[in-house]
């Protein structure tokens, strides 16, 4: 851009970098603290001696978590759920957004449909009727219940619809003159340029699937079918963790074996962190993608 050479500008630049670094630090400091907790000894945690750095470093919490069969199984359930859930959402969203976005083609009932869709996103029947509905559809204790009800995401549809609208009309018109069908237009013209927005909604959907816990707890009868966050919820927030942590720690202490540093706090933080890793891995990768994509979209408009 522009060269900044004056002293004031240089000071500002230094100040700017410091401020930004401080902000970034403030945002991650709690996580560093949590990581330190999960790597610190029982005694250090009890004495509140753990700050941003582990005290009496050990990795037993992680060893325990990774050896815990149900944790790994739930992890697997969550991965499968994300893969299928995001795929279902993508198919549903693209197919719904396309007709709604083709404003140049008049369509019977388009506006009422959009209103109804928005309305359906705002109101729910409540827990018990929804549960009863799922049961009568034979979806309780069925893996599909984690995927199908969330497949139609109203706001993703709106997002993609608006993105489609921004694709230059000339492109579409030229294709139509060549006799292209709606399927051709969707698959050959729209989808190839829509990757950024699709990546964006996929990230939203994946994070949503990964983080949701309530449906697992309510609809799945067997804990072995629970997604990871349901399992974590039960363990971390419902005090099961305390039971498990102390029982495991107590047992181990008696055995004089390796897990003598397990603590409820350490164990729960370790679990949370392991559960967060996939998001941390995926996000920076997609972030670049979708910021670029969003920019692209608006330039085109």
């Amino acid at each position: 851009m522009i060269a900044e050479n004056s002293l004031g500008d240089r000071l500002f630049t230094i100040f700017l970098y410091l401020m930004m670094a401080l902000l970034a630090f403030l945002c991650v400091a709690p996580f560093i603290h949590v990581i330190s907790l999960s790597l610190s000894s029982n005694a250090a945690i009890k004495m509140g001696a753990v700050g941003l750095w582990p005290v009496d470093f050990h990795t037993q919490n992680y060893q325990f978590v990774l050896k815990e069969p149900q944790f790994m199984r739930s992890f697997g359930v969550s991965v499968v759920r994300v893969v299928f859930g995001v795929s279902a959402m993508l198919i549903m969203t693209i197919m719904t957004a396309y007709p709604l976005s083709r404003d140049s083609v008049p369509m019977f009932g388009r506006t009422p449909f959009k209103m109804i869709m928005l309305f359906s996103g705002m109101f729910g029947g409540g827990l018990i009727p929804t549960y009863m509905a799922m049961r009568s559809l034979h979806l309780t204790n069925n893996f599909l219940v984690l995927i199908l009800p969330g497949a139609l995401a109203v706001f993703s549809v709106i997002l993609v619809m608006n993105f489609f609208r921004g694709i230059p009309v000339e492109l579409t018109e030229a294709a139509e003159l060549d006799g292209a069908s709606h399927w051709d237009i969707l698959f050959r013209i729209f989808l190839p340029v829509s990757l950024p927005v699709l990546a964006t909604i996929s990230l939203f959907s994946a994070v949503g699937h990964w983080n949701s816990w309530f449906d697992g707890v309510i609809y799945m009868d067997e804990i072995r079918m629970w997604p990871l966050q349901s399992y974590l919820y039960a363990r971390v927030t419902s005090q099961m963790i305390q039971k498990s942590g102390t029982a495991a720690g107590g047992t181990a202490e008696r055995m004089g074996q390796s897990f003598n540093e397990l603590t409820p706090e350490g164990l729960s933080t370790a679990m949370i962190l392991v559960a967060t890793i996939p998001i941390l891995l995926v996000y920076p990768f997609l972030q670049r993608y979708f910021v670029k994509g969003l920019t692209l979209g608006s330039v085109k408009g």
Partner: peptide, 25 residues
């Protein structure tokens, strides 16, 4: 026999029980 497995959290478990009773099961 296991009708379902509890979450171990009183709030979630009583919700599940209530929904099961309400739906006649």
């Amino acid at each position: 026999m296991s009708k379902w497995e509890p979450a171990g959290d009183p709030a979630a478990d009583s919700q599940k029980l209530n929904t099961a009773i309400a739906s006649g099961d």
